[in-house]
Design a protein around this nucleic acid. Structure first.
Lengths: 335, 335
DNA sequence: GGATGATACGCAAGCGCTTGCTACCAGCAA
DNA sequence: TTGCTGGTAGCAAGCGCTTGCGTATCATCC
């Protein structure tokens, strides 16, 4: 494969001029430039990114670490992050952890070895070790709902409170007083935060809240719903840790002869694309994943421009009202 | 950031020995090795991937080019490809084209500049230019349903025939004789192939087939269904170019008072994850996307091991039977 | 007519690693 | 003693590019 030296030789000029033409980094006589460009075509020259990055001493990579690309929450986030990165002149290096701490660490090491300019860790739970690892390598990083901002390290938090308040207010106005929460695994910070938000708001409304815990999947939702059904006295409104859980809940309720939303309202979380496609479509607490991806990059970018910067952003969740919620049949519509 | 030279100096030995310890590429005395390892820890040393790749003259990157990560067809493919690549000791560089030819070309250039060992182009349509570009750069490549295999270039084809035959046989046995196809945009090779497969099989059964064309989306399915409804005499079985289309079709039919599957059976294509989650869940012609991802890497891998190799694989589609199909109500169950 | 700026380019020292070649030192057989 | 061999490790030439510094040329201006 042709190198810059080949091009230079064939043009009868020095490598540096070729380099300057390629990078537009100092003026070059039009004829010289034209000749270089022509010869580059003739030799089918393609720059060597490794050599360039080595010589420059830094790369244009930003890392994005996620849990699992098959989790419908991520594609939108990735797309937004990638879009912002591309626009900012960066390439993204994507790593998946599959919810495995070792893989997460390996991913970070890989990013360090690639001298990524910055790394966004958007996994559902993060080992604090990672933050240290990246910090010690002097790489700017941003974490989702984890760690504390500091030197070259930022954080983005999801405020479940806004969405939770909107949801409970909405349900309350419909006449609901009796809630259940199918909470996700309580070893994931986001699920803890979500649960806490719901509990706080429900308590403020002096309503009842029954909490069951279940994996963050359709099957988990089914299991959670079975738990609720066997408990007797099904709450009229069921909040879920994710949309997948909500789908499982709805399916199980319907199979048990419970109509959704007439007998029970079900509210999901995330607002994954499929939430609009199910029937009934899902009322859900929306996590702004596109915004999250975009902000993640912006935060990194800001940290790159100013070494001292560190940010602590908060993104609000909101309620998307669709068909899976309605006024309860069992209960009167006033306090 | 500490370099190999720093480590070597601090150990009082040469760089080459450090390198050999890191790569396990020649025996080193145990004490020396231990010392090096210790010092690497002390200095917080992380190898420089750029320098390594430059020195080695090749990278361990394989490229994966896809259309749009938000298309639910891709995540499973990506995951399988990545899994296989990781196992094979490669890192994957993911690029998305957003269905844009310019971006596709830019992606390939980027991969060339990164001296990717191989590139899998799994976009829904590919510009032949890309194949040339990669070939001329001497990079092994594999394309989905495009181009012809050749020097350092392979192909994977989807055989829609198997799935189409299974679907029509199944529907025929249920008593269907009157079909519609909501075909995707006929400028995409895969949609052309799919349509052709369906047409061939239906003709062999001497049944009727009405074809309408619509975008490959939920909205497209809705439009397609409206076309069918206004045509009067709705066919009893409707095949769709994708699962999203099928969802749109079902939704529109139901809104028009047509019961699925009692009045009309609807069959999707792809078998995206959500196909099991809708109600009714989707009978669909399954594209083995995990297998596709895995085979794509294997084909590349084979080409890397043997420069002369070129492969032409065919992957069969199959029928996944779920709730959106049943015997037609309108028509007797015999010929 | 020499000083002065532009303008256009070459030189060469890296960037941090890999790797073929060579060197040294036992230990041992001839 | 000489010559091998096996175990260790150093030397130095790259890999292909970037970039600070320096130089040559030439029109311009008192």
């Amino acid at each position: 494969m042709a190198t810059m030296k080949d091009v230079a030789r064939r043009c009868g000029i020095s490598e540096s001029t070729v380099s300057h033409v390629i990078n537009n980094t100092r003026p070059v006589a039009p004829e010289t430039r034209a000749k270089i460009l022509r010869v580059m075509g003739e030799l089918n020259y393609h720059g060597n990114a490794h050599a360039r990055r080595l010589a420059r001493g830094h790369s244009d990579f930003v890392g994005l670490v996620i849990s699992d690309i098959e989790n419908p929450f991520y594609p939108g986030l990735i797309k937004a992050f990638e879009g912002a990165a591309l626009q900012g002149g960066f390439d993204v290096l994507l790593s998946t952890t599959r919810y495995d701490a070792d893989r997460a660490e390996a991913a970070c090491r890989k990013l360090i070895e690639n001298r990524a300019a910055g790394v966004a860790v958007m996994t559902s739970s993060v080992d604090p070790k990672l933050a240290t690892l990246l910090s010690e390598a002097g790489i700017a990083s941003v974490f989702l709902d984890a760690g504390t901002p500091g030197r070259r390290r930022s954080r983005i938090r999801l405020d479940f409170g806004t969405g939770a308040r909107a949801a409970i207010n909405y349900l309350h106005n419909l006449g609901h007083r009796d809630y259940a929460l199918v909470a996700g695994p309580q070893n994931r910070p986001s699920h803890v935060a979500y649960r806490k938000a719901i509990e706080t708001v429900v308590r403020a409304h002096r309503s009842r809240l029954l909490v069951v815990e279940a994996p963050n999947t359709v099957a988990g939702g089914e299991a959670g719903a079975r738990d609720l059904l066997t408990g007797g006295n099904l709450p009229t409104a069921i909040l879920c840790s994710s949309d997948l859980t909500a789908i499982g809940v709805i399916r199980t309720l319907r199979n048990a002869g419970v109509d959704v939303p007439a007998d029970a309202s079900v509210v999901g979380a995330d607002d994954i694309p499929l939430a609009t496609l199910t029937s009934p479509s899902l009322t859900t607490i929306r996590i702004p994943r596109e915004r999250l991806g975009q902000v993640a990059f912006e935060v990194l970018h800001a940290m790159l421009k100013d070494e001292k910067t560190s940010r602590d952003e908060t993104l609000e969740t909101e309620l998307a009202i669709r068909e899976s919620s309605a006024a309860p049949r069992r209960r009167a519509k006033s306090t």
